[in-house]
Amino acid sequence: MNTSKVWYVTGASQGLGLTLVKKLLANGYRVAATSRNAQLLKEAVGLRDTGRFLPLSADLNNPDCIDESIRQTIDAFGQIDVVVNNAGYGMAGTIEEIAEQDIKKIFDVNVLATINVTRRILPVMRLQRFGYIINIGSVAGFVGAPGWAAYAATKAAVAAFSEVLALDVKEFGIRVTVVEPSGFRTGFLTQNSLAYTESRIDGYQAVKDTQARYLAGNGKQPGDPGRAAEILIQLSESEQPPLHLYLGKDAYSRASEKLKVMTQEIEDWRELTISVDFEI
């Protein structure tokens, strides 16, 4: 395990981000971590070793803040080897009942922040001729659940961004993985991590049933964030990490089933699909 690597982790004050930062520091890595409040982050991590831990206050939708956090990281550690774009939150509710400004906000945090951090760290990694970018997506970005359309759209965007980014930066020795978990016990369904709009419209029964089931299962999710953090560290040591990594039995089942359905649907409609081309 190469503990000389420097990690830059966003959204690190709670959930998977906090678990990962603690695990990295326990294993001797150097870590720069961002949060909206660096003091709260420092208290949550509990480590006072300024030689290995750099807590940073950063508004990830402000390019100047991102640039400053990267500058401070380079000044402190001299390099950035692994980036984990973890900042984000959930949103549940019907599309017609969620306010437009709330939809814009979740895209700002879940998608644009990931893109902004990546585009500003890429010059550092290109000069190094190496680097590893881990974007935290969700199985919902591939197989969404009723009532999670806005959130699923953001995570689908993160997955598509990661796929093309990997093609763009391969020649520089930079690798990319989008991690797509199912339910983890990270407080994701709590007030600080979920914007929830209860439906008051008659109908939408699938949405209401799904939300009730999800909220009732809060704190009982099967995913272990500690194990997930260990897997992210393991990925960073791999010479050929996967482009997509689903985490959790539920993620595996949902993704596998959708692939089967999609394959069958593509074949069922093959003749109509190819009929649109000019005859050659």
Score class of each variant (00 low, 15 high):
residue 1 M to R: 03
residue 17 G to E: 06
residue 21 V to H: 04
residue 23 K to I: 01
residue 24 L to S: 08
residue 25 L to Y: 05
residue 28 G to Y: 14
residue 31 V to M: 10
residue 35 S to H: 11
residue 35 S to V: 10
residue 37 N to I: 01
residue 39 Q to N: 09
residue 40 L to H: 09
residue 40 L to R: 10
residue 42 K to F: 01
residue 47 L to M: 07
residue 48 R to F: 09
residue 49 D to A: 05
residue 49 D to M: 07
residue 52 R to E: 02
residue 52 R to K: 15
residue 60 L to I: 01
residue 60 L to S: 01
residue 61 N to Q: 06
residue 61 N to H: 09
residue 63 P to W: 06
residue 64 D to Y: 05
residue 65 C to R: 01
residue 66 I to M: 01
residue 67 D to S: 10
residue 67 D to G: 02
residue 72 Q to L: 15
residue 74 I to N: 01
residue 77 F to T: 00
residue 79 Q to R: 15
residue 81 D to I: 07
residue 82 V to W: 12
residue 83 V to A: 06
residue 87 A to D: 03
residue 88 G to S: 06
residue 92 A to W: 15
residue 93 G to F: 11
residue 96 E to F: 13
residue 98 I to E: 03
residue 99 A to S: 13
residue 99 A to D: 14
residue 104 K to D: 09
residue 107 F to M: 02
residue 108 D to V: 01
residue 110 N to D: 12
residue 110 N to R: 07
residue 111 V to D: 03
residue 112 L to V: 05
residue 114 T to G: 02
residue 115 I to Y: 03
residue 118 T to P: 05
residue 123 P to C: 09
residue 123 P to Q: 05
residue 125 M to K: 07
residue 125 M to E: 07
residue 126 R to F: 12
residue 134 I to S: 02
residue 134 I to Y: 10
residue 138 S to L: 15
residue 139 V to Q: 09
residue 140 A to I: 11
residue 141 G to V: 04
residue 142 F to P: 00
residue 143 V to S: 10
residue 146 P to G: 09
residue 147 G to D: 06
residue 158 V to W: 13
residue 158 V to E: 03
residue 162 S to E: 01
residue 163 E to G: 03
residue 165 L to E: 00
residue 169 V to Q: 12
residue 169 V to E: 09
residue 169 V to A: 11
residue 170 K to W: 11
residue 170 K to A: 15
residue 170 K to N: 06
residue 176 V to P: 00
residue 176 V to R: 01
residue 181 P to N: 14
residue 183 G to R: 12
residue 184 F to R: 07
residue 187 G to I: 08
residue 189 L to D: 09
residue 190 T to H: 08
residue 192 N to D: 11
residue 197 T to Y: 15
residue 198 E to R: 14
residue 201 I to K: 12
residue 202 D to A: 14
residue 203 G to T: 07
residue 205 Q to H: 10
residue 205 Q to M: 02
residue 209 D to R: 13
residue 216 A to Y: 05
residue 219 G to F: 11
residue 219 G to C: 08
residue 221 Q to Y: 11
residue 222 P to T: 01
residue 223 G to V: 14
residue 224 D to H: 04
residue 226 G to F: 13
residue 226 G to K: 08
residue 226 G to N: 12
residue 231 I to D: 05
residue 234 Q to R: 08
residue 235 L to V: 02
residue 236 S to L: 03
residue 237 E to Y: 04
residue 242 P to E: 02
residue 247 L to H: 09
residue 248 G to E: 03
residue 255 A to G: 02
residue 255 A to S: 05
residue 262 M to F: 14
residue 264 Q to L: 07
residue 268 D to C: 04
residue 271 E to P: 00
residue 276 V to R: 07
residue 277 D to F: 15
residue 279 E to N: 14
